[in-house]
Design a protein around this nucleic acid. Structure first.
Ligand code: MN
Ligand code: MN
Ligand code: MN
Ligand code: MN
Lengths: 230, 230
DNA sequence: CACGACGTTTAGGCATACCTAAATATTAGG
DNA sequence: CCTAATATTTAGGTATGCCTAAACGTCGTG
């Protein structure tokens, strides 16, 4: 039998909303069960069940149409952005105040984001001087829930032989972050794409050096850049 | 039917172990189901079920004898002390670094104590200079799990007209803490018990002032003191 | 030493979020 | 426009921690 009830304050609910926000992209397009199943590492059938509960809650958190995926409702989006704000504030705090290595902030934030109070959020934001971006270069949603659009592109899509700035690096894989740190690549660093294989293997120059660095596809894919000028 | 399985890493498990540690007292005496039911605000039947699972776990966390209460096993005690260490370090951190008002640290610590990593524990301990007592005056167990015995007594049991030092105040009720703060009573403050009614209502003098302060029984009961000298 | 009050345990069940297997809907290719 | 591949949903079930009601044990008092 299907489950009937949702705990709208559970860690699980938070994670579904965050995933829908992330997978929907800036256009907030509908997200499929399968994509969620992959992202959350949960069986597709479990996703369907949860989506139905998210949609049927007394204040519905998603708009769900059978066989056609989901979108966040206004309340759902509000909560999703709040959790992202928690996540990125916590990451910044761990990095700036507790001197975590960059590659370890994500995992801790991923847990704590669901359990901190509004007061905790406020106090770390104040302590950090109300930061706007986290240590990976991701933008921190405002308390109001507003989050500016980023106009960056993947390194794998950048023009060849043009200087660009690293805007952000993905926080999801610790190994990748360690490697990037060792290579001197991080938010704010200038790089130039020298060459790109069909399989998205990228050769780059970091900073003003002349050394070439070859990045496998998965690493290159974790870097977002924007034009130098403006 | 009885439940068969325990999640030894759950928040619930942590809370049972902490409660058994607290209720067992310094002599680590056996704790009854009823006492736990009251302390944790859970039905007695649920307590029995959980105790059986704690005792039957692959590494048993309690020693349980039907109708005769429980004691912590060595592993159970280890985990209980670790959670207490987390709790008190977090309280100290919230108070010292994030400027929480004393009466709000407990609630936040009560949640977060279950979710922080060993690294987080280490880093806040380092940041705070490896503190030995929390803002309520409670002693913080060492990483090894060692915790010195406190040789204090309740204010309600102190000798009359003798100067004593406040060693600690209970962290459990925010209202009480606010009142104590307003009265200038906190760890390290010198007070003198002037008078005590049969119902444990206490009249005290705080510090070197000459003002009398009358404390109702529940407030007086939340204060532990020790002799001035030594 | 028997009884009753009280504490404890057993029995049965619910809530939430997950699972697998089977059924069904969508959609792309012929 | 039909069909096969694929995506999604339904059905039935598990895990963990909680509940109430009923049965049972312990222990102090008469
Ligand atoms: Mn918040
Ligand atoms: Mn990040
Ligand atoms: Mn620890
Ligand atoms: Mn405390």
């Amino acid at each position: 039998m299907a489950n009937r009830q949702l705990n709208p304050n559970s860690e699980s609910t938070d994670n579904y909303l965050k995933a829908i926000l992330a997978l929907g992209g800036p256009e907030e397009s509908r997200v499929t069960s399968n994509a969620l199943a992959r992202h959350l590492d949960v069986a597709p059938a479990s996703i369907t069940n949860m989506l139905q509960k998210l949609a049927a809650a007394s204040t519905p958190l998603v708009e769900y149409e059978r066989h056609h995926g989901v979108q966040l409702s206004p309340s759902g989006k509000k909560r999703a952005l709040e959790v992202v704000r928690h996540h990125r504030l916590i990451e910044t705090f761990l990095y700036e105040v507790l001197d975590y290595p960059i590659e370890e902030v994500h995992e801790e934030a991923e847990r704590l984001e669901h359990f901190i109070s509004e007061r905790f959020e406020q106090r770390i934001a104040a302590k950090l001087g109300y930061p706007k971006i986290d240590p990976h270069g991701h933008c921190i949603p405002a308390m109001s829930g507003r989050m500016p659009k980023q106009s960056s592109m993947l390194l794998t899509e950048a023009a060849l032989k043009t200087n660009v700035l690293v805007e952000s690096v993905s926080d999801r894989d610790a190994g990748t972050l360690k490697l990037l740190k060792a290579s001197g690549i991080g938010p704010g660093v200038q790089i130039r794409l020298q060459e790109r294989t069909p399989a998205s293997r990228c050769t780059v120059v970091v900073g003003r050096s002349s050394k070439m660095l070859e990045l496998p596809e998965n690493i290159a894919h974790s870097i977002r850049v924007r034009p130098l000028d403006k």
